[in-house]
Design a protein around this nucleic acid. Structure first.
Lengths: 200, 200
DNA sequence: TTGTTTTTAGAACAAGTGTTCTAAAATATT
DNA sequence: AATATTTTAGAACACTTGTTCTAAAAACAA
């Protein structure tokens, strides 16, 4: 394993456990048993590490999108994709724990993130349209209702990790499940009877 | 106006605009036209300022709870209280923009915040119980559904501000309205026909 | 007025951080 | 084997931050 990869691995661990502000080039160098001068040679500063790890996350998400294709069952597809995304976000949870400061400081990440989110909103709209046409989802009984639902789902998707950090002492799988259940629960009232059956 | 109050006022502004990490005793002293030694005399460090401002927020929220009492219309009461809370949180938005780091660093705030949130969850449950009995809200058609709805509402309530910071360029009233609409939309599918009418 | 307390300014200090630089060591290339 | 390139260690630097300290100024009390 290359030094660069070892650094990224250790950085992900320290970012997740200590936060981006308590992780320094020196603390990383110490954990890795190398000099911080050397670390500086590979990554100029912690922001460079954050950017590199963010690109890793994006790469993993795109990989997931390419792999899973269930064009026959859009509801299952959507739920499964959401679950995988939940797990991926948890792997890189330091990003969401500190997203405001990171996007304030690193303009490139801010732009990429906004683009991803607009795309996800669009995808939800498209999927909802399909689901309505197939009778799995109720039509909007108030104009703009679906868009507000999507806002709710996206806010939950982006912020369940900070929320868990503050309110839970546990970590890992149980937390993921807890919030993913909430995510699904947010969806159910908008489904038809038929949709509810397909949901289970 | 006492120096202490002037400091708190300036701190709130800088925290909201620059973030808690870019605001320093020196930057505050400069804005106020006093020495940072003097500032240190009143507040030992920025954490002391954060704690003081957090106590201000709590005080304002409690004041609001005491004032508004509509025991005749619980639905209106709940929505109005939520709106006022949305506005108060926006006034002290720096707290929510940086909640993870703040609660990690300042244990007392973490504990107070968790207590407040448990209380709010309980209040929602009580109110939902009343609304169901009055026929304004549908009964849970899946066990635990209300609790997951509350999780969704609380996550939105705590995180719409960080979300707005990342995704919106606008600030102020329009942002508050946008997310408060999403909050109300999250509630509507759980209401009965009668509840929907009372809602408008 | 006189003495006491509170408030203020400004210097000085310590600790931590990213950054740069130099030279040695390791590795790769010819 | 000789040379060039990449990688590494460690020192040195500049900068920021909170913190402490001293003494002057202001406000207040007797």
């Amino acid at each position: 394993m290359s030094t660069k990869d070892r650094i990224l691995e250790a950085a992900l661990r320290q970012f997740n456990e200590l936060g981006t502000d308590q992780t320094t080039l020196r603390s990383l160098a110490e954990e890795l048993g190398i000099s911080h001068g050397n670390l500086c040679y590979h990554f100029k500063n912690t922001d460079a590490l954050i950017e590199a790890l963010y690109d890793c996350l994006i790469a993993e998400i795109e990989e997931q999108v390419i792999q899973s294709q269930h064009p026959d069952n859009e509801l299952e597809e959507m739920v499964l994709q959401a679950e995988t995304t939940f797990r991926l976000l948890y792997k890189y949870r330091f990003l969401l724990l500190d997203l405001v400061r990171i996007t304030r400081r690193i303009e490139s990440i801010r732009q990429k993130f906004r683009a991803v989110m607009q795309l996800r909103r669009l995808q939800f709209h498209v999927t909802f349209g399909h689901l309505v046409r197939r009778g799995l989802m109720r039509e909007e009984w108030v104009p703009g209702l679906h868009d507000r639902l999507i806002t709710n789902l996206l806010v939950l998707g982006d912020n369940w990790i900070p929320n868990a950090e503050i309110h839970f002492d546990e970590k890992g799988e149980s937390v993921i499940r807890y919030y993913f259940e909430a995510f699904k629960a947010g969806l159910t009232p908008y489904l038809t009877e038929q949709g509810m059956e397909a949901f289970r």
